[in-house]
C-alpha cells in the first residue's frame, strides 16, 4: 500500500515538473491551473504521510530508521508548498522553473523514502 502511494506521488511529481518545465520553457509564469496541480501533488504527499504514520503507529519499522523516515516524509510533504510559495514571489518563467525543480526534488525524496522503508520487501 505504501509502496503504491510512493510510486504514485513520484509519478505525479514528475508530471508536475514536466508541466511547469514546459511553462518555463515557453516563458510563462505559473498559472492557476499549475497551482491546482501543485495542490493535487501536495494532497497525495499528505495521504502518504498519513498512511506512513498509521503504519508506524501499528509498530512497523522502516529498514533504515524511523527518525530518517519521518524526516523525509515531512520534507516530501513540504516540498511542493514551499515551491508554490517561491513561485508566487517570482511571477516570471523562473517561478515555473522553481516548481519544476520542486517536482524533481520530490521525486528524488520519494525514491529515498522507498529505500528507507525497504520498498518491495513488505
Amino acid at each position: 500500500m505504501l509502496d503504491a502511494v510512493t510510486i504514485t506521488v513520484s509519478v505525479a511529481a514528475l508530471l508536475l515538473a514536466a508541466w511547469c518545465g514546459f511553462a518555463a520553457f515557453h516563458d510563462q509564469p505559473t498559472k492557476d491551473w499549475h497551482f491546482i496541480g501543485m495542490a493535487v501533488v501536495t494532497v497525495l504527499a499528505l495521504v502518504q504521510l498519513v498512511i506512513a504514520l498509521v503504519k508506524l503507529s501499528r509498530g512497523e519499522k522502516p529498514d533504515q530508521g524511523t527518525l530518517i523516515f519521518v524526516s523525509y516524509l515531512v520534507g516530501a510533504a513540504c516540498t511542493i508548498p514551499a515551491a508554490a510559495f517561491m513561485s508566487l514571489t517570482e511571477r516570471t518563467r523562473w517561478g515555473s522553473a522553481i516548481v519544476a525543480a520542486g517536482g524533481v526534488i520530490l521525486a528524488v525524496l520519494e525514491v529515498r523514502l522507498f529505500d528507507i522503508w525497504g520498498g518491495g520487501s513488505v
Partner: peptide, 14 residues
C-alpha cells in the same frame, strides 16, 4: 535574488 536568482535561492534553501 530575482529571476534566475530566485531559482538558485530556492535550490540553496533546499
Amino acid at each position: 535574488g530575482r529571476g534566475p536568482g530566485r531559482l538558485l535561492l530556492s535550490l540553496y534553501g533546499v
